[in-house]
Design a protein around this nucleic acid. Structure first.
Length: 283
DNA sequence: CACCATGTTCCTTG
DNA sequence: CCAAGGAACATGGT
């Protein structure tokens, strides 16, 4: 479930486990998962490099790398796409069938697995150009949001999805934030009043911040027993149980009662995606 | 079999 | 230049 909160939780999980470690070997099992280099060039670039720092920008994981023996620094971006996962496991454990890229860290392997192959690794950070502000940083003020929306005639749902006004929201959290803000997804950006802008600004921060807190509160890698670390099973109880935690107010809840006014949630098609909202309290 | 899916990029059309 | 819409990517779940 990789939108900003899931990536943030993953970064915080991975950083202390991989920073300062040297990648002893690199194996690209699916060439599609690395760009712009081919498999061999990517492997030789990565091999021997040290992961210095792992941070997040929008939905990207940013790995600050350094070549061995005083060599130069470079940047590797990871993106999870729709189904990507990154985790560590003992080197002797069999790899999941969709394992795409493997970094050998001695007794452990750092794996990138991606069934649909929409994600992958990118050398360099050109992809970060053009991204809007980080919604949880101090620089993301109501004024910044208002400036990004004021002149747009697009529907607010579509604009928030495209990463240039605000970075990191995906289909789920756009629906959630608009519900919390009480704004219909079909509203033209330029029509938002300043009170609505303030509600939206707060809603974006609250929804993303709350999801991060939830993610951080869940146990990851319980006893190392799972093949994966459970990070992307937010909606389920730890250990792979079936109990689904109450997470979303409107996303994937067509026909269910709006948590605020109990009117059935509706689903429409916008920006090429299913869009969930309350027809009564989102105006 | 049909339809849906957390993302991004590219292309066409208006 | 902007906006809208669709397709593509490849696979799995219901």
């Amino acid at each position: 479930m990789p939108e900003l909160p899931e990536v943030e939780v993953l970064v915080r999980h991975l950083a202390p486990r991989v920073e300062r470690r040297r990648i002893e070997s690199a194996e690209v099992l699916r060439p599609k998962s690395v760009r712009p280099l081919d498999r061999a060039a990517f492997e030789s670039l990565v091999k021997g490099s040290v992961i210095q720092k792992v941070t997040r920008r929008a939905k990207y994981l940013r790995f600050a790398m350094r070549r061995p023996r005083g060599g130069g620094g470079w940047v590797l971006l990871g993106h999870l796409g729709m189904t990507g996962r990154m985790y560590l496991q003992p080197a002797e454990r069999p790899r999941e069938k969709h394992t795409s890229v493997v970094f050998g860290l001695g007794r452990e392997e750092f794996l990138f697995e991606d069934a649909r192959q929409f994600g992958g690794w990118v050398v360099g950070e050109e992809r970060l150009a053009g991204l809007g502000p980080e919604p949880l940083e101090a620089g993301f003020t109501v004024g910044v949001l208002a400036d990004a929306l004021r002149r747009s005639r697009q529907a607010i749902k579509v604009r928030l999805l495209d990463q240039s006004a605000v970075a990191g929201l995906g289909n789920i959290y756009v629906c959630e934030a608009l519900n919390v803000a009480g704004i219909a997804p079909t509203r033209e950006c330029a029509s938002l009043q300043s009170v609505e802008m303030e509600r939206l600004h707060r809603a974006i921060r609250d929804v993303l911040g709350g999801a991060i807190q939830l993610g951080l509160s869940l146990p990851l890698d319980p006893a190392g027993e799972g093949v994966r670390d459970g990070l992307f099973y937010f909606g389920r109880a730890p250990g792979g149980g079936e109990a689904v935690l109450e997470r979303f107010r409107v996303y994937d809840r067509e026909g269910e009662a709006c948590p605020r006014c109990s009117v059935p949630i509706r689903r429409v098609w916008m920006g090429g995606r299913g869009t969930f909202f309350c027809p009564d309290c989102q105006k």
